[in-house]
Design a binder for these strands. Structure first.
Length: 887
RNA sequence: GGCGGAGUGGCGGAACUGGCAGACGCAACGGAUUCAAAAUCCGUUGGGCUCACACCCGUGAGGGUUCAAUUCCCUCCUCCGCUACCA
């Protein structure tokens, strides 16, 4: 018998209790059963299949595809849940929604895992196996969250059917001279044994992946000429109005466009020239020395001409700087330099100026050479003080003079030109252009622009990536693999351990080939592409994932640009710039009719949690920490940090879904705070969302007998009790509020709060004596709550919708609309201020005029008392808000 | 150093265009229910003072504008992100 069955778990005890106390017709909220059922229904019915709603406007909702790293934590979930809520909302708003998912499946971790397994178990796990296994797990997790995608469009960048087209795009770039090979000093990680892009080197000079100090190495590498697009990438940021400013600001800084002038200094002897870049051509007459970066080609040439011991001193200095570079030359610290033993000629005065090499000149920026103007640049000033260069003032502040001999720091502000020959007395901003012009006339320089943005180095000496489709032939050089021979299949390799070149170099059957041009024996390129190449175009492949060409332009032009892209801001200067670059290129070769891939971008905040570090065991999981101590007994250091695998502070979704249900986890994730801001995950707070869903369930259950057969809207609220009228009003106000909160920037936290308020009010009111109209108000309320919650807690919503006697799916239902008339309050309580402080309150009819409000306020006893018979100085009436009586 | 974001109860966070600070939730406390506990339901909950009403204080700090400031302006402090000897 029911009563004798003992509760199996605390949670079941709730059901047990409820079954006893509620009437027979009440069903309990069995979220596990409900969630499984509806997840099956959605897949069966193809709810998320795009293109199934012809005639409706399209909406492409995209979340950044994940790297299949293992398992997902609740922080990852935020991204998918926001995207899913949006997709479901847009379905109800009448859009034909495309919401695809795939896997950024090439990359180092899979390879490192293979190496690690080989080391620890003596048996390598193939990166493919590792990746596919992770994909299976993560797909299952996404499913369990109730997050839906058009899985027919699933792609994985490691699949030959995908990387064939990554390779094809490489060939197209090559054809258009946007891919090229050059020998250059590159960032090299000695541990990962691979080249890194600038973006993959951390601030401290460590490798992004393993933290090992990055060194410099000369290698022949493939590059994409993204710098050719620098201006367009910068200028078009202005067209991206729906991108968060923090992201566009980061891209702007990353591109780093600087306008200035290039100035030529001839060497005193010989015909070598040196070009400097400056933004301060106006200070040209203040040049007392010129410095070049230690890596500058001229340095080696000068060294060659030097005699010992000067030559050794110079070479030692260069070597020291190179070594320092890896460890990051300390910012604005002590400056060091050394004479190159030659002078250069000032382009306008013709006078000799010393040429030095200095560590504060960077080969990476501008021309790698700087003109030293100590009077007007603080770095040059410090350098000049240290090595005794003269300080010549050429810009004077307004109405003042400066003396180079006594100044204590450089004067970097604007002023008037002095000691500058024919340019004297010009405001320096004007003189700058004049001097640049003069240089241009003499062919000794001119205006120029430099960028911080570098060309994109895409070669990686690693296995798990798309092979670069190039063949090297002794006769023909670097020859592109013909399109018809694509894909260049990534072969199996026996050993993934990098040895300074790609593991592919050891696979002879891969390397040995014939030249596509002359058919002589040739060797394949053994490097693979940076995974950011894979992800720079995946959003296009979703449209026609199995097509026998890169994509179908007509279809892509229909679905794109992406209407809403959702992801983390950490991709601001990598993936998001590369994708914009690819899109612009494809536009230029007329495969796309749009230039920007993502119309709107939403960068959601990170989910953080406490991370614990044990002095002996490193980062340890929360479950192994008690009272500030690790299970080994040592005290841990605790910090708040973004959930991550490394810090072992990622909360697993499975136990939470098991205990509370996917809908609860979804609701809490959306309720946790403003979605664009970082948030702290507090598992104990989940209970609030869980209780709320129980309350929603109960409210509808209790209502069911009363609303049987009632219409979905009351004919009138005339004669109904005040609390019932209030419910009706609140229903429409909440529809308005929730809709505005979603449309106005994904404010799910406040949208959920508004729905909670509504449910509280529905529960409080009594409907039994109100007849059919009260029943209709209750029915409308229940239906509205269900519809409003549907994007957030889809399983519960579907179930309630069915209980309310409606046909599934609720996502085929139109989003509810509000009746402005029903939102209007009959009476409004208005605070009365006296001299700006609230002293009383007044209930006014909603339609009260300003005059009526004023009169009512002046009649208020508190006001009468304060006035003491005198007339007020002013009375400010803000209709429906407040009245302020100023004495 | 530069750019961007933030600072509100014990906690997460609300607040339209300058108009009732603290919505909603967590925690806490009190009560109902229970043999009891859990769960659930109802209530209280910024601080001070008070029997209570009232009053005073209160949105990082200090100033200003205004009838009215979390909101606008100035100065400063702290935290986070990006970037940094960028010529």
């Amino acid at each position: 018998m029911l009563f004798s069955a003992p509760p199996a778990s605390p949670r079941d005890a709730v059901f047990f209790h409820r079954t006893r106390t509620h009437t027979e017709m009440s069903r309990k909220y069995e979220f596990r059963q409900i969630e499984t059922r509806w997840q099956q229904q959605w897949s069966r019915a193809g709810l998320f299949r795009a293109g199934g709603r012809p005639g409706r406007p399209k909406f492409y909702a995209l979340v950044m595809f994940p790297y299949p790293s293992g398992t997902l934590h609740v922080g990852h979930g935020r991204n998918y849940i926001i995207g899913d809520a949006l997709a479901r909302y847009k379905m109800m708003k009448g859009f034909d929604v495309l919401t695809p998912m795939g896997w950024d499946a090439f990359g180092l971790p899979a390879e490192n895992a293979a190496i690690e397994a080989a080391r620890s178990e003596g048996q390598p796990v193939h990166p493919r196996e590792y990746t596919l296994r992770n994909i299976r797990v993560m797909k299952q997790q996404i499913h369990a969250w109730g997050v839906g995608y058009d899985w027919d469009r699933e792609i994985a960048s490691c699949h030959p059917g995908y990387y064939r087209w990554t390779q094809w795009l490489f060939l197209k770039l090559l054809e258009n001279k946007l891919a090229y090979r050059k020998m250059a000093p590159v960032n090299w990680c000695p541990a990962c044994q691979t080249v890194l892009a600038n973006e993959q080197v951390e601030e401290d000079g460590g490798c992004e992946r393993c933290g090992t100090q990055v060194t410099q190495k000369n290698l022949e590498q493939w590059y994409f000429r993204i710098t050719k697009y620098a201006d367009r990438l910068l200028d078009d940021l202005d067209t991206l109005e729906d991108w968060p400013e923090r992201v566009t600001a980061m891209q702007e800084a990353w591109i780093g466009r600087t306008e200035g002038a290039e100035i030529v200094f001839r060497l005193e002897s010989g015909d070598e020239k040196i070009r400097v870049f400056t933004t301060r051509a106006d200070t040209l007459f203040g040049v007392t020395f010129v410095v070049v970066a230690p890596e500058h080609p001229l340095v080696a040439k000068c060294a060659a001409k030097m005699a010992e011991p000067e030559r050794k001193k110079l070479n030692d200095f260069v070597a020291k700087c190179r070594a320092q570079k890896a460890m990051q030359r300390t910012a604005a610290g002590d400056k060091e330099g050394i004479s190159l033993g030659v002078n250069v000629i000032h382009p306008l005065t013709g006078k000799p100026v010393a040429l030095w090499a200095a560590d504060y000149a960077l080969m990476d920026f501008g021309t790698g050479a700087v003109m030293g103007v100590p009077a007007h640049d603080q770095r040059d000033f410090l350098f000049a003080k240290k090595y005794g260069f003269p300080i010549k003032v050429v810009i004077a502040p307004k109405g003042a003079t400066l003396d180079g001999a006594t100044m204590e720091k450089a004067f970097e502000d604007d002023g008037v030109q002095v000691n500058s020959g024919e340019f004297d007395n010009l405001p320096n901003n004007f003189g700058r252009a004049k001097i640049t012009e003069a240089l241009e006339d003499r062919e000794l320089g001119g205006p120029t622009i430099t960028y911080r943005l570098r060309d994109w180095l895409i070669s990686r000496q690693r296995y798990w990536g798309a092979p670069i489709p190039i063949v090297y032939c002794a006769n023909c050089g670097a020859v592109p693999v013909p399109e018809s021979d694509l894909p260049v299949i990534l072969p199996d390799a026996a050993d993934f351990k990098p040895k300074g070149q790609s593991p592919l170099a050891a696979v002879e059957s891969f390397v040995k080939t014939t030249c596509p041009v002359c058919e002589d024996p040739a060797r394949r390129e053994t490097d693979t592409m940076d995974t950011f190449v894979d992800s720079a175009w995946y959003f296009l492949r979703y449209i026609s994932p199995r097509a026998d060409r890169v994509f179908v332009p007509e279809d892509v032009n229909h679905w794109l640009p992406v209407d809403q892209y959702i992801g983390g801001a950490e991709h601001a200067t990598k993936h998001l710039i590369y994708s914009r670059f690819f899109t612009k290129f494809l536009y230029d070769i007329e495969l796309l009719n749009f230039e920007e891939p993502f119309s709107r971008l939403f960068a959601q905040g990170l989910i953080c949690a406490d991370a614990h570090q044990c002095p002996e065991h490193g980062w340890v999981s929360e479950k192994d920490v008690k009272d500030g101590k690790h299970s080994c007994g040592q005290a841990v250091r605790t910090e708040m940090a973004k959930m991550s695998k490394t810090k072992k502070n990622g909360a697993a979704p499975e136990p939470l879904i098991e205990e509370f249900g996917a809908d609860t986890v979804r609701l809490y994730t959306l309720f946790i705070g403003p979605p664009e801001r970082d948030a702290i995950w507090a598992t104990k707070d989940i209970i609030g969302s869980h209780r709320f869903l129980y309350r929603v369930w109960d409210t509808v259950q209790e209502a069911l007998p009363q609303i049987q057969g009632a219409p979905s809207q009351p004919q009138t609220t005339e004669g109904l009790a005040e609390d019932v009228k209030a419910v009706r009003r609140k229903v429409h106000q909440t529809i308005r509020k929730v809709t505005e909160e979603i449309e106005g920037g994904f404010k799910f936290n406040t949208a959920v709060a508004a729905t909670m308020e509504l449910v509280n009010e529905i529960k409080r009111a009594k409907y039994d004596s109100g007849g059919p109209n009260a029943a209709a108000v209750l029915r409308e309320a229940c239906e509205s709550v269900t519809l409003l919650l549907a994007p957030f807690v889809p399983h519960l919503a579907e179930e309630l919708w069915e209980l309310l006697g409606k046909n599934p799916s609720i996502f085929d239902q139109p989003w509810p609309t509000f009746d402005p008339a029903a939102c209007v309050e009959a009476e409004i309580e208005v605070p009365i201020q006296i001299n700006g402080k609230i002293r009383s309150r007044l209930v006014l009819a909603a339609g009260a005029t300003e005059e009526q409000a004023r009169a009512a306020a002046l009649a208020d006893p508190k006001v009468v008392e304060a006035l003491a018979g005198k007339a007020p100085r002013t009375v400010i009436v803000v209709p429906k808000r407040m009245v302020n009586v100023v004495l």
